[in-house]
């Protein structure tokens, strides 16, 4: 089963990479905020797969912390890092 776990982990990493295109290109700041959502779920899934593949249960605790932090990150993003005006209406 280990090759499957690792293949899927790499697959999810590629997903994350592809999703980054949207985060980088926007076009609105709201689209950039989607990074919080994307990273939250995908990173947790990758960690769980690695925990199983290498038999390191501690990685599940890392995933747990990631899951907890995802909500906090989102609030911080939206409240603090998101300017009140949309400045870049370049494409939409």
């Amino acid at each position: 089963m280990q090759p499957l776990y690792l293949t899927l982990a790499v697959f999810l990493l590629l997903n994350l990479g592809a999703g980054m295109w949207r985060v980088v290109h926007g076009p609105t700041n709201a689209d950039r905020m989607l990074a919080a959502q994307l990273f939250g779920t995908t990173a947790v899934a990758i960690l769980l797969l690695l925990a199983q593949a290498y038999g390191i249960p501690a990685l599940r605790d890392v995933a747990l912390v990631f899951a907890l932090l995802a909500a906090v990150t989102a609030v911080a993003f939206v409240r603090i890092a998101w300017p009140n005006r949309e400045t870049d209406h370049d494409a939409d």
Binding site: A30, A36, Q37, G40, T41, L64, L68, A70, A74, V75
Partner: peptide, 15 residues
Amino acid sequence: ILVLLAGASIAHLVS
């Protein structure tokens, strides 16, 4: 469950 809660909150906050 934690990811579900975070996901629903993030979706709400961003939209």
